[in-house]
């Protein structure tokens, strides 16, 4: 299997269906683990969905003093193990993308696990399965490559030219290559 999560921030319509779906996922304890936020509320009502990147070498796991954040063999970075987590919140500050959430009452960190019970069996995570505008998609690697190519072409048509030193600003984000 070779599926990835594909995000297109501009497609987000701010319906927050992904948050509701996340709350329904098994093991999420009725708390959402993803985000829908305004890019700049003063300028527009544009929102963006935000999930965990499932880093190959996660900073959150590296800054955890209790070694509580584990990575599955498929490459999914799991929430802190409840018995190990000491509740220091280092992960929330170490993460370059501000993803992990912290529950003060239960003294544990929780974060997006790509709905491990679903994606393990090749089923789209909850958020991707409900997104009406396809801002979040769970697609094949090849399909993603095709979309990225198209996106770059569109950028060129629009007149956004990739500068020599950073072409990456002009291709959309993809992450969580699930296995290879």
């Amino acid at each position: 299997m070779n599926k990835i999560m594909y995000l297109e921030f501009e497609r987000c319509i701010g319906c927050r269906a992904c948050l509701a779906a996340c709350r329904e996922c098994g093991g999420h304890d009725a708390k959402e683990r993803n985000y829908v936020e305004y890019v700049d509320f003063m300028e527009s009502r544009q929102t963006y969905p935000m999930l965990c990147m499932q880093c190959k070498d996660p900073a959150c796991a590296r800054v955890c003093p209790a070694n509580a954040i584990q990575i599955t063999e498929e490459g999914v970075v799991l929430s802190a193990m409840e018995e190990k987590c000491i509740g220091c919140r280092n992960c929330t500050f170490g993460c370059p993308f501000g993803i992990p959430k912290f529950d003060f009452e239960e003294n544990k960190m929780y974060k997006c696990d790509m709905c491990y019970d679903r994606s393990k069996h090749d089923i789209a995570p909850m958020c991707a399965s409900v997104c009406p505008s396809e801002a979040i998609r769970f697609i094949d690697f090849d399909e993603m490559q095709e979309l990225r190519r198209k996106r770059t072409q569109m950028n060129l048509i629009e007149g956004k030219k990739p500068a020599e030193h950073d072409k990456w600003q002009y291709v959309p984000e993809f992450f969580g290559v699930y296995s290879d």
């Binding site: 985000y35 936020e37 890019v39 700049d40 993460c95 501000g98 992990p100």
Partner: peptide
Amino acid sequence: SDYCPACRRRIRVMKQLN
């Protein structure tokens, strides 16, 4: 890590959207 998690998320999106 000098920015709060919400700002870090925003920085990423801003960068991504150029």
